[in-house]
């Protein structure tokens, strides 16, 4: 099966947040009380009850207020580091490349949250589980669109094969260049490539994205060096101790000193 995901074309998004509502409805996530902070962004951040949000970034440019809004959620990485660090093997990829979590197996250790280069997974304190967007595998398996894509009224969200989405994105960016010289495709190579592809009308930072998000070296060192190799040190010291137990006795050191310490080894 080819990798599937969806395209987020920010140049077509009107910031209506229909996708946010559809996601909450489909996943049956309760409402959360928020307070007005002087911005159009109603939900301040991803939370355990908000798998997707629309972020609003406002800038004053040439005496004009400019708005940059975009949908945020799990990027469904081709090589997801959350999957790699999960000690319970709770995270897996579906045959279309969606990154999903087995709620039963998740123990809420939050390793995945810290490891994710996009800082997506959020901790659900009530149930002691980590949460994030799953790309609606239960819908797509039945030939349905993900809830957010289905709800999008402007066509800013488009579900399909990753390769085709990339081609559409590249074409769209070249069209946009005339009016938006900084337009770019995001997700084609970030963090090793993701199944969610963005068409951004301006530089990624403007939308609160990192230009080149990378897996932290602390996480890499932890997963690739410390965890696989260092525990052998414990075995090594155990082996040296066993060796010493026999060699000291064979060489007679034990015998000679026995009168001093019969307390335990007689």
């Amino acid at each position: 099966m080819p990798n599937k995901g969806y395209l987020v074309d920010t140049s077509k998004c009107i910031g209506c947040r229909g996708c946010v509502v559809a996601c909450k409805q489909w996943n049956q996530l309760p409402a959360e009380r928020t307070s007005f902070k002087g911005t159009y962004q109603t939900v301040p951040d991803l939370t355990a009850n908000n798998y997707t949000i629309v972020t609003f970034h406002e800038y004053e440019e040439d005496g004009q207020i400019k708005w940059y809004f975009t949908k945020r959620q799990c990027m469904h990485c081709l090589d997801p580091v959350c999957l790699k660090v999960c000690p319970q093997k709770a995270i897996s990829k579906t045959d279309t490349g969606a990154v999903v979590r087995d709620r039963e197996k998740c123990v809420g250790c939050q390793y995945c949250a810290a490891a994710c280069p996009f800082h997506v997974p959020r901790y659900d304190k009530v149930n002691d589980k980590e949460t994030k967007c799953s790309l609606c595998p239960e819908r797509t398996a039945e030939g349905e669109l993900p809830a957010c894509v289905k709800a999008c009224i402007t066509g800013a969200l488009q579900y399909g094969d990753r390769d085709q989405l990339l081609a559409i994105a590249n074409k769209r960016v070249s069209e946009l260049k005339a009016e938006y010289p900084n337009a770019n495709v995001y997700g084609d190579k970030q963090a090793g490539g993701t199944n969610i592809i963005y068409v951004l009308a301006d530089k990624p930072e403007k939308y609160g994205f990192e230009e080149d998000p990378k897996v932290s070296i602390a996480i890499t060192a932890w997963q690739d060096i410390i965890q696989p190799y260092f525990p052998w040190l414990i075995a090594l010291t155990g082996a040296v101790s066993v060796f010493s137990f026999f060699s000291t006795r064979l060489l007679g050191v034990g015998k000679e000193k026995a009168h001093e310490g019969e307390g335990i080894h007689g």
Binding site: T237, S244, G263, I264, H265
Partner: peptide, 20 residues
């Protein structure tokens, strides 16, 4: 790792029984 040594040296190593 250090604990493995410590446990052995503090108990079964000849001459450390008293400290144990």
């Amino acid at each position: 790792m250090q604990l493995m040594f410590h446990m052995y040296l503090g108990s079964l190593h000849p001459g450390s029984g008293e400290s144990f």
